[in-house]
Amino acid sequence: MLVSAVQQVVQHVQQQRLASGVADGFIIIVHPLQGHARHVVLRINNQLRVLQAATPEALEDVQRAFAYQQPVIGVWDTQSPHVLRSVRIQRI
Protein backbone atom coordinates (compact mmCIF):
# COMPACT_ATOMS: atom_id res chain seq x y z
CA MET A 1 0.00 0.00 0.00
CA LEU A 2 2.76 2.44 0.94
CA VAL A 3 4.60 1.87 -2.33
CA SER A 4 1.47 2.52 -4.39
CA ALA A 5 0.68 5.70 -2.41
CA VAL A 6 4.21 7.00 -2.94
CA GLN A 7 4.05 6.07 -6.63
CA GLN A 8 0.80 8.04 -7.01
CA VAL A 9 2.38 11.11 -5.42
CA VAL A 10 5.52 10.73 -7.53
CA GLN A 11 3.53 10.42 -10.75
CA HIS A 12 1.51 13.51 -9.92
CA VAL A 13 4.45 15.68 -8.93
CA GLN A 14 6.80 14.60 -11.71
CA GLN A 15 4.68 16.60 -14.11
CA GLN A 16 5.35 19.72 -12.06
CA ARG A 17 9.16 19.40 -11.71
CA LEU A 18 8.64 18.29 -8.14
CA ALA A 19 10.08 15.32 -6.29
CA SER A 20 8.90 13.40 -3.24
CA GLY A 21 10.03 10.82 -0.74
CA VAL A 22 9.11 9.16 2.53
CA ALA A 23 10.61 10.64 5.69
CA ASP A 24 12.37 8.33 8.13
CA GLY A 25 13.05 10.93 10.81
CA PHE A 26 12.14 14.44 11.88
CA ILE A 27 13.24 17.41 13.95
CA ILE A 28 10.81 19.93 15.40
CA ILE A 29 12.08 23.13 16.98
CA VAL A 30 9.65 23.37 19.89
CA HIS A 31 10.71 26.83 21.04
CA PRO A 32 12.26 28.76 18.14
CA LEU A 33 14.33 31.86 18.67
CA GLN A 34 12.30 35.00 19.14
CA GLY A 35 11.12 36.33 15.80
CA HIS A 36 11.60 33.00 14.01
CA ALA A 37 8.83 30.74 12.74
CA ARG A 38 8.49 27.10 13.69
CA HIS A 39 9.93 24.66 11.21
CA VAL A 40 9.64 20.93 10.70
CA VAL A 41 12.74 19.24 9.36
CA LEU A 42 12.24 15.85 7.71
CA ARG A 43 15.02 13.41 6.83
CA ILE A 44 14.27 12.02 3.39
CA ASN A 45 16.83 9.97 1.46
CA ASN A 46 19.48 10.93 4.05
CA GLN A 47 18.95 14.64 3.36
CA LEU A 48 17.32 17.18 5.64
CA ARG A 49 14.40 19.04 4.08
CA VAL A 50 12.60 21.92 5.81
CA LEU A 51 8.92 22.81 5.96
CA GLN A 52 9.13 26.49 6.81
CA ALA A 53 6.62 28.31 9.02
CA ALA A 54 4.77 25.12 9.93
CA THR A 55 1.42 25.54 11.62
CA PRO A 56 0.87 24.07 15.09
CA GLU A 57 -1.46 21.52 13.46
CA ALA A 58 1.27 20.44 11.04
CA LEU A 59 3.70 19.98 13.92
CA GLU A 60 1.21 17.78 15.77
CA ASP A 61 0.29 15.81 12.65
CA VAL A 62 3.93 14.97 11.90
CA GLN A 63 4.58 13.90 15.50
CA ARG A 64 1.41 11.79 15.56
CA ALA A 65 2.23 10.16 12.21
CA PHE A 66 5.67 9.08 13.40
CA ALA A 67 4.24 7.89 16.74
CA TYR A 68 1.75 5.66 14.90
CA GLN A 69 4.25 4.68 12.18
CA GLN A 70 2.24 6.32 9.40
CA PRO A 71 4.14 7.37 6.26
CA VAL A 72 5.09 11.04 6.06
CA ILE A 73 5.73 12.08 2.46
CA GLY A 74 7.58 15.29 1.69
CA VAL A 75 7.31 17.11 -1.65
CA TRP A 76 9.91 19.60 -2.88
CA ASP A 77 10.80 21.56 -5.99
CA THR A 78 13.81 20.05 -7.74
CA GLN A 79 15.32 23.54 -8.03
CA SER A 80 15.21 23.97 -4.20
CA PRO A 81 15.61 20.42 -2.89
CA HIS A 82 16.02 21.35 0.78
CA VAL A 83 12.77 23.31 1.07
CA LEU A 84 9.56 21.31 1.34
CA ARG A 85 6.57 22.59 -0.58
CA SER A 86 4.14 20.12 0.98
CA VAL A 87 3.90 17.32 3.51
CA ARG A 88 1.44 14.47 3.10
CA ILE A 89 0.57 11.99 5.83
CA GLN A 90 -0.85 8.63 4.77
CA ARG A 91 -3.48 7.29 7.12
CA ILE A 92 -4.60 3.99 5.67
Rank of each mutant, 00 (worst) to 15 (best):
L2M: 06
V3K: 02
V3A: 05
V3P: 00
S4P: 00
A5K: 06
V6M: 06
V6Q: 05
V6N: 01
Q7M: 09
Q7Y: 01
V9C: 07
V10H: 13
V10N: 13
Q11G: 13
Q11N: 13
Q11C: 04
V13H: 12
Q14M: 12
Q14P: 00
Q16M: 13
Q16R: 15
Q16N: 12
R17M: 10
R17C: 06
L18Y: 12
L18P: 02
A19N: 12
S20C: 15
G21N: 04
G21L: 06
V22S: 13
V22W: 08
V22C: 15
A23N: 01
A23I: 02
A23S: 04
A23G: 05
A23V: 02
D24M: 04
G25A: 15
F26G: 03
F26W: 09
I28P: 00
I28H: 04
I28E: 01
I29P: 00
I29T: 07
V30A: 05
V30D: 06
H31I: 07
H31G: 00
P32T: 02
Q34I: 08
G35P: 08
H36S: 09
H36P: 00
A37R: 08
A37C: 07
A37N: 12
R38P: 02
H39T: 14
H39F: 04
H39V: 13
V40L: 04
V41M: 12
L42W: 02
R43H: 10
R43T: 15
N45Q: 13
N46A: 05
Q47I: 01
Q47T: 09
L48P: 00
L48M: 08
R49M: 02
R49L: 01
V50E: 03
L51G: 05
Q52I: 10
Q52V: 12
A53S: 15
A53K: 14
A54R: 03
T55K: 13
P56G: 09
P56V: 08
E57A: 14
A58T: 13
L59E: 14
E60T: 12
E60L: 08
D61Y: 01
D61E: 12
D61I: 04
V62G: 03
A67Q: 14
Y68V: 11
Y68Q: 15
Y68W: 07
Y68P: 01
Q69N: 14
Q69I: 08
P71C: 06
I73T: 02
G74K: 08
V75T: 07
W76I: 02
W76H: 03
D77Y: 02
D77G: 03
T78D: 10
Q79K: 03
S80F: 09
S80K: 11
S80A: 11
P81E: 06
H82A: 10
H82W: 01
V83T: 15
R85E: 11
R88A: 09
R88G: 06
I89C: 04
Q90G: 06
Q90M: 11
R91A: 10
I92V: 10
